[in-house]
């Protein structure tokens, strides 16, 4: 019972933190660009405003257009429920593991692409086609990178993987983990639409991927999609933190350990979001036709990681 309550609290924490993570990243980027920038709370204000606006729906939109935001949000929330945030005890482990997580993420991606295609606009179709190109290369990389960890721990349950790394810290600096971490980071940037694959701040239709698919959405639908995108970013950052460096995560369900663990995960998110902002300041966006090369590199790294984990078991 306590574990279930904690899992629900973790989900709420992740969803509530997500816009803040995006806001913090934007704020750091603004500072690095010599601007004052908006406060960390700006994405919350934007969500409140967008939820309150009316909707304009294209005449050519079918039921798929109306379904897509709900499926994207639901699949992201379900995926967020599977990720261990503050505790390695995951009651959701009985419902889904690493493979369920990846399946939920790709389900959201597919419906987002369908929602982009549905109204029949030129930019929506272009965005969907690009998203599918990128997703086809990143989803297997993410899965194989985490599978490399699963091979060492002998379980595909996310909580068990974090527990095994905690028990054997030597694993964390082994070649399997290091390679998997590099692969995971590149795939994560692609999956969440960050530089150098996609520019989250762009207004140029010809260069966008994620933004191009949601151009037709307005009002509450747009707010749902924005929130889901922020949750996906936070979810993958938490996954990176807790799979590859799980130190600080609670192994027992008691108030002291959980409170400490919340502080630790906030600190980890702060560090990862700062690194993300610094990286986005440093690199330029890749030409679209160079993106598959980068993703192929990350896939190769993931494959090497899995091989290395397999032979060094």
């Amino acid at each position: 019972m306590a574990a279930l309550l904690l899992a629900a609290a973790e989900l709420v924490l992740l969803m509530a933190l997500a816009p803040g993570v995006v806001g913090y990243t934007r704020w750091v980027k603004a500072r690095l660009q010599g601007r004052r920038g908006a406060g960390v709370l700006q994405p919350y204000r934007e969500l409140r405003k967008t939820f309150g606006k009316s909707m304009v729906i294209a005449d050519s939109a079918s039921w798929i257009f109306h379904l897509a935001p709900w499926v994207v949000t639901a699949s992201t929330v379900a995926a967020a429920a599977l990720v261990p945030v503050v505790s390695v005890h995951q009651p959701a482990d009985q419902l889904g593991d690493l493979f369920a997580l990846m399946a939920l993420l790709i389900l959201g991606t597919v419906f987002l692409a369908l929602g982009g295609l549905d109204p029949g606009t030129a930019f929506g179709g272009m965005g969907s086609s690009r998203e599918m190109t990128v997703a086809a290369l990143t989803e297997p990389t993410l899965a194989i990178a985490v599978l490399a960890l699963a091979l060492t721990s002998g379980s595909t349950s996310l909580g068990a993987i974090a527990g095994t790394v905690l028990a054997n810290p030597a694993n964390a600096i082994g070649p399997g983990h290091a390679l998997a971490f590099a692969a995971f980071l590149i795939a994560m940037l692609a999956e969440t639409g960050r530089l150098p694959i996609d520019n989250p701040a762009t207004h140029l239709e010809l260069t966008m991927i994620h933004e191009a698919m949601i151009l037709e959405y307005s009002g509450p639908y747009l707010a749902l999609l924005e929130w889901a995108a922020a949750t996906k970013l936070t979810l993958l950052l938490v996954l990176a933190a807790n799979m590859f460096a799980p130190w600080g995560i609670a192994t027992a369900i008691e108030p002291g350990a959980v409170a400490r663990s919340v502080g630790v995960i906030l600190a980890k998110l702060l560090v990862l979001a700062t690194l993300l902002a610094v990286l986005e300041t440093r690199v330029a966006k890749l030409r679209l036709f160079r993106v598959p090369e980068l993703l192929a590199v990350s896939f190769t790294l993931a494959l090497l990681a899995a091989t290395s984990s397999f032979f060094s078991r």
Partner: peptide, 21 residues
């Protein structure tokens, strides 16, 4: 840009009138 920085007032440009206020 950095000098006028409209983002400090919570303003930003969007690519679609559907997103606009």
């Amino acid at each position: 840009g950095p000098v006028y920085d409209m983002e400090r007032f919570g303003l930003h440009f969007v690519a679609s009138p559907r997103h606009a206020d």
